[in-house]
Each structure stands twice: as structure tokens, then as C-alpha cells.
């Protein structure tokens, strides 16, 4: 991924280079890069005059932040009670087969990542998943594979 630090500088500027805005800064960084990259944490440490260990502490404390790269498409597969009963495990298998990654992992080309979550609040659509804020419901393993295939093709076309 190309990083000129221009985005990081913009984020820091927006938050006035203030230590007390650290969490907001990290949220914006996470939005930009989909995770908190090591060099960005060091860079923020330099810019805010904060020990990097402190930023790491904040970054690892909140579940919202990820220290590992996430895919361009972040798949959140629901494993709440309703979805679990409706067979979300079979959906996970389908994703694993299609992408060759396990929950918490990201594909080598950084296009897809998958995480299991407790509940998406879409129980009426169980089993459900969310990809980049778009909700997919009433899924079957076949439908999941179809959706991922489509996204893959879209990626190929874009290139």
C-alpha cells in the first residue's frame, strides 16, 4: 500500500496534533488504512511526542482497533445465537474454502479479511454477514461463494 504520510499528516492536523485526541486520531487512521500500521504508530509517537508503547497500549485495548491489516473487503460473519442456529458455521466453511483464510486472517493480496462477530443485530435475516457496511441476509453457502466470486471479479476488472 502506498503511504506518503500525507493522510496521516492531514489526520494529525485535523486533530491539532493534540495528545488528548489520540483515540480520534487512531480511529481516523484505522478508517484510512483499515488497521494501525506499525510505522504509522511510530510516526504518530514522533509527531505527538508520546512514547510509542502508550499508543500501542491504546491500540490493543479497544477491540475497534486492529494491529493486523484488514482486507479491502472486511467480511464480518455473524455467529450470534440466531445465525448460529441457522447454520452460520457452514457459511464460515464456504468462506474458508473460497478464500483460504480463517477468522482473524487476511488474504495475501490484502483484498479479503474475515472475522466472526457476536451479533450484527440482523437476526431476522439470519444467517447474515456484513461486507464493508453492506448487509447480506438469508445466506446459504452457495450464496456466500457467489458474493465473494463477484467481488473477486470486480477486483480483476478494476485492475
Amino acid at each position: 500500500m502506498e503511504r506518503t504520510f500525507q493522510k496521516v499528516e492531514e489526520i494529525l492536523k485535523k486533530h491539532e496534533y493534540k495528545k488528548e485526541n489520540l483515540i480520534r486520531i487512531l480511529l481516523d487512521v484505522q478508517k484510512q488504512y483499515r488497521y494501525l500500521p506499525e510505522d504509522v504508530i511510530n510516526y504518530i509517537g514522533v509527531a505527538l511526542q508520546l512514547p510509542p508503547a502508550k499508543i500501542y497500549g491504546v491500540g490493543t485495548f479497544y477491540a475497534q482497533f486492529s494491529l493486523k491489516p484488514k482486507g479491502k473487503y472486511t467480511i464480518l460473519l455473524c455467529d450470534g445465537t440466531a445465525c448460529h442456529m441457522e447454520g452460520s458455521i457452514s457459511l464460515l466453511k464456504a468462506i474458508e474454502e473460497e478464500l483460504n483464510i480463517k477468522p482473524g486472517e487476511v488474504t495475501k493480496d490484502l483484498v479479503f479479511s474475515v472475522d466472526q462477530v457476536g451479533c450484527l443485530g440482523a437476526c431476522a435475516l439470519a444467517p447474515a454477514m456484513v461486507i464493508n457496511e453492506e448487509v447480506y441476509g438469508n445466506l446459504t453457502p452457495e450464496k456466500v461463494k457467489e458474493i465473494i466470486k463477484k467481488l473477486k471479479e470486480g477486483e480483476k476488472d478494476a485492475q
Binding site: I41, P51, A53, G57, T60, F61
Partner: peptide, 25 residues
């Protein structure tokens, strides 16, 4: 480390049972 020595090499990371004192990364 942070208050007396002004450095802060180590700090708490992670949460709950996984909490650890560690340098960055």
C-alpha cells in the same frame, strides 16, 4: 519508567486477562 525516568519504554497493552506490560509491538 514514564514518571521518574521520563521515557515510557513499557506500558500496558491488551485488555482483561490478556493484559501485559510490554514495549511497543
Amino acid at each position: 519508567c514514564e514518571e521518574v525516568q521520563g521515557i515510557g519504554v513499557i506500558d500496558f497493552a491488551y485488555r482483561g486477562f490478556s493484559t501485559q506490560v510490554t514495549p511497543v509491538f
